[in-house]
């Protein structure tokens, strides 16, 4: 199934690229992130995931959120400074 991703936190996702990808049916947010790392040949350090925030189709999501055909996933990060 096709799913789209946009990274708003390019600093912590290395060479992972925005785009539309063909991923297995029944994939979760975590599955999609694993897939993207595999595609890029890069493993994101575990601590970088601490500050990541996921939104799928405009709604907040977790790593175990199921994706459906045409899903649009945004990967943001916590912006907490003041």
């Amino acid at each position: 199934m096709l799913a789209k991703v946009k990274f708003h936190c390019k600093e912590i996702v290395g060479s992972l690229q925005n785009g539309e990808y063909d991923i297995p049916e029944g994939s979760t947010v975590k599955d999609f992130m694993d897939f993207l790392q595999q595609q890029a040949g890069e493993i994101i350090p575990a601590e970088n995931f601490d500050s990541m925030v996921y939104m799928v189709n405009g709604k907040p999501a977790q790593e175990d959120t199921l994706l459906t055909e045409g899903a649009f996933m945004r990967v943001l990060y916590k912006i907490l400074g003041g």
Partner: peptide, 27 residues
């Protein structure tokens, strides 16, 4: 955070988007 920033307005009837704030802050 660094070079980035984020702004939004919350009205009293809104659900609070805690997922943007709570939990580990990261580097």
């Amino acid at each position: 955070s660094g070079w980035a920033g984020r702004v939004f307005v919350l009205m009293p009837e809104d659900e609070i988007p805690d997922y943007l704030w709570l939990g580990p802050a990261g580097t």
